[in-house]
Amino acid sequence: MMDLYAATKDSGRIVQELNRLDGNVVRSYAGQSNGAFHYFNLTSFSPDEKVIKAELRWFRHTQTFLKGHHFYKVDLYEVLDGRVKPWRGNLITSRLLPMNTTGWEVFNITNAATKWILNGGANNGILLVSTLPSGQWFETTVQLGEAKKPEENDAYLVVYSTDGWRGSGQGSGSPLDLVLESKIPHGTTGRKRRSTHRPPPDHRQFATCQRAPLYVDFTKIGWSGWIISPRGYNAYQCVGSCPFPLGGSLRATNHAIVQSIVDALKLSSKVEQPCCVPDVLHPISLLYFDDEENVVLRQYDDMVADSCGCH
């Protein structure tokens, strides 16, 4: 997942997008393994999301103790019931692998994973069967004499999906609200009205509307315990005034220009100057743990102010 996150980084910029990946959400599920049987609990998957691709990532070890053989076959089965036997499942795919190599093998199991998510009761896991050319079974686990650490896992299910919010421009009820709502530090609330007695920020150093730094440190706001990366990012903010007349550099909308004219002529006491706000926003990607301790890579839209204008 760290490799996937690194692949989203835009060279030379803090902005990280999932344009190079499938969908805007990637989840990694660690399997509950019992030999060749691997089960993945997908109950944390949101029903509002659409599965784009699902991959079983299985780590294969060099099988040097099987002398005289150069290749072996791996059959991947969807288990249909509790009896863990290959003939009781649907064959998903078969692959011929060399004996003397070690590394991650990736299998496309999109159809099976999609069915599990739509109908959780049908999820009985995956059975991975390894056979020699003669048809003899054998266990493709660690080599003889090797010790496997308890925290190590040789099978992961990686699901790429979309939550329907990419490019929607919607904020209220967005994934950021839903996922982060329970992460607000104790004693605060994300919907508390700002005090009317709080003095306004001093923007005298910014004469006219422009972009200024605004670094968000996830440690300081209490999110470092569940956000893996980044540790923080520059969201930027828009500061300064929108004085009459609005020049071209202020990126004013037609509505803002008309509003500034009405304000300058004092035609109404209820009309104020246009506001300096972000007019171009970029997303960032967050790598974090969800409530089930699964690793999630998700793109959140409208997180970085790229430019400011008078609106």
Rank of each mutant, 00 (worst) to 15 (best):
V277A: 08
I257W: 04
S249Q: 15
E151M: 11
L76K: 02
P47M: 03
T253I: 05
K53W: 00
D10C: 06
K270H: 10
F138S: 04
S46F: 01
F107G: 01
A252T: 09
R298S: 10
T93K: 07
G82Y: 04
G173L: 08
N24R: 05
G121S: 15
D263Q: 14
E272D: 09
N19I: 06
V84I: 13
N153H: 13
Y39V: 01
Y160H: 15
C209I: 13
D302P: 05
W223M: 14
V15K: 06
E139V: 13
D177R: 05
G120D: 11
E55L: 07
T101W: 05
T110Q: 11
Q143I: 01
V158H: 01
F59L: 05
V304F: 04
V25N: 00
Q16L: 03
W137K: 13
P245D: 03
A112E: 14
L157A: 02
G89L: 04
R27N: 10
R95P: 00
G12C: 06
A212I: 15
L56S: 02
L178C: 01
I261Q: 14
V296C: 00
Q205D: 15
V51K: 02
L286S: 02
R60P: 00
V277Y: 04
H203Y: 12
I227M: 04
L91I: 12
T93A: 09
T196W: 11
C242K: 03
K148M: 15
V129W: 09
N234C: 09
P133K: 08
R191C: 07
Y77T: 01
F59A: 01
Q273F: 03
E272G: 05
D279I: 15
P150D: 11
G125P: 12
R57N: 11
V25P: 00
A235M: 15
N124V: 00
